[in-house]
């Protein structure tokens, strides 16, 4: 599918879903009952109109180009693995951060991320970077900025694994 076709469809669908959700907003009890919906509704309408305009312009362009395929940029063949892996690790970090505490979760997160991006063959440098990064930032936050980072929380870990809270 052409790049702008995707953008146009995305905008129309997003505008439609957002508009539908706007109509489900509760009416305001103070002032005009419609007031909280007016601005979002305007946004939804514009998203649909602009998406449709992108689709129309793109159709015209496609007709002018005579169905020639758009040139794809050269990409690293393994990039999809990197993106998916990073997103999974980021999501897991979010869940682990408060339960396992900053140090444990960041050590695991950074090491795994470096193994993914900086490749497993550089495992020694990955370990060194992980350790330096984790403890240098911990020191900076705790001692210089006076910001407490979460410690290991056994109750949260139990809750996370469905083992019940408290001892």
């Amino acid at each position: 599918m052409r790049r702008d076709t995707v953008v146009g469809l995305f905008s129309v669908v997003l505008g439609g879903l957002y508009g539908a959700e706007t109509l489900r907003i509760r009416s305001a009890t103070i002032g005009s009952s419609w007031a909280p919906r007016v601005f979002p509704l305007g946004i939804a309408v514009f998203l649909i109109i602009l998406g449709a305009a992108v689709l129309i312009v793109d159709r015209k362009k496609a007709a002018l180009e005579g169905g020639k395929a758009q040139k794809a940029k050269a990409r690293d063949p393994g990039y999809a693995k990197l993106i998916v892996g990073t997103l999974v690790l980021c999501g897991a970090y979010g869940f682990a951060f408060e339960a396992f505490g900053y140090i444990l979760s960041t050590l695991c997160f950074m090491f795994l991320l470096l193994m993914l991006v900086n490749e497993p063959k550089r495992w020694t440098s990955n370990i060194v970077i992980t350790l330096v990064f984790t403890f240098a930032l911990w020191g900076t936050f705790v001692y210089i900025f006076d910001i407490m980072l979460p410690p290991f929380n056994l109750d949260a870990v139990r809750e996370m694994f469905g083992l019940g809270g408290g001892i």
Binding site: I25, G31, A35, P36, P40, L47
Partner: peptide, 22 residues
């Protein structure tokens, strides 16, 4: 489109004037 997506993100949360959740 980018601008309207940005505006869309700002409408999430409790409406400051009416207190309605959006």
């Amino acid at each position: 489109i980018s601008m309207f997506i940005g505006l869309m993100l700002t409408t999430v949360g409790i409406d400051l004037q009416s207190g309605v959740q959006r």
